[in-house]
Design a protein around this nucleic acid. Sequence first.
DNA 1: TGTCAACCGGGCTGTCGGTCCGGATCGCAA
DNA 2: TTGCGATCCGGACCGACAGCCCGGTTGACA
Lengths: 200, 200
Amino acid sequence: MTRAERSDAARNRAAVLVAADELFATVPEPARLSMDDVAAAAGVGKGTLFRAFGNRAGLLQALWQRRYEPLRDAIESGPPPLGPETNPRQRIAAILDAILVVKLDNRHLTLAVEERSGGTSLYGQPQYQLVHQLLCDLVRATGGGGDSELLAHLLLAAVRADLLTHLASRQGISRRRLRADLASAVDLVLEAADASPPSD
Amino acid sequence: MTRAERSDAARNRAAVLVAADELFATVPEPARLSMDDVAAAAGVGKGTLFRAFGNRAGLLQALWQRRYEPLRDAIESGPPPLGPETNPRQRIAAILDAILVVKLDNRHLTLAVEERSGGTSLYGQPQYQLVHQLLCDLVRATGGGGDSELLAHLLLAAVRADLLTHLASRQGISRRRLRADLASAVDLVLEAADASPPSD
DNA sequence: TGTCAACCGGGCTGTCGGTCCGGATCGCAA
DNA sequence: TTGCGATCCGGACCGACAGCCCGGTTGACA
């Protein structure tokens, strides 16, 4: 039986989340942020840190979840243009744009989350599989041709953290320009899918 | 002044390349392949290994270069459909298809090469930037709308090692199916770009 | 064959993710 | 308030791994 979490454990967990958030926002190279650093910044022992989150990936997931949850809720049950009432074409565009913005706002964190390490891959994360499934359905609903699964992967590949970071930080492309270009690219893909119905 | 490489150094370098190639082909989890393993398999000391390739990334680059070179040559100066005489649309499709095949054939290696570690990113590699530049030009030559830079990134994102590995190894999608789906997706994107000329 | 620079090997170091366990703390009950 | 057991804390500890170092060796050339 799982007992209720003790109050000091909850307090420490919260402290870690706050401190880690702060660290990821300020540190220049997220890959070099060690668990010891996080523990020290949170004023907590390493044992506590690992008991609360299991491992590094667990901590990153927890941090990312906090950032992503509002967007997920808006997509699942919010008002247009993210919510389910929007027509598929516009909804896809709105979702990808929102993801772009969130990832840009949390560049370091998303970079670390999507980093492939050990046996984990971006494509194995439940978060990814959920949004991919949704995009699949939406793409199919636009009635276009092509394989909807691969198309959905393609659309999501456009907002991968390392690509965004390269374009924004390394190449200095502005957020406005990025959003506009993404929107036009998405539109282009969907327009084509729309214009070429299944061949049979 | 850089002196000529001594013969034993050249021999050892070759031995390492052979042994590492073999290891990457057989080992199940490429991320867990340590430099010590490579050195041991090549029958060479660790010092030799690091002197020859600088660091892990250098070794991976050298391995990947050997695999990628034939394709690069075929693209730069070979016969159609990869060579420069082909029309842009078909050439883009041919290039992406060839990349897909090479990456699938060297799954573990490409996975390790594209792995983000330290300050390196796929998008910072000269190999990537070269093929991206070429695709940019080709996309622009098709005369379609949209930002050619982002479009080229999108096309290349379709053949990223982790995505291919997920589709092929994790989901069990056949190579034939993968190639067909990629071809249709590429065609779809380019068709749309073709059909919607620049807005001004 | 002698000489010396280049090279070899593998032991060593620093770092980091993750574990362990003696001691402190919390929650509850009387 | 006090007693008690389960839960939690903290930081020392471990194993793995990238990369460095240096005494001994070997190839190149006269």
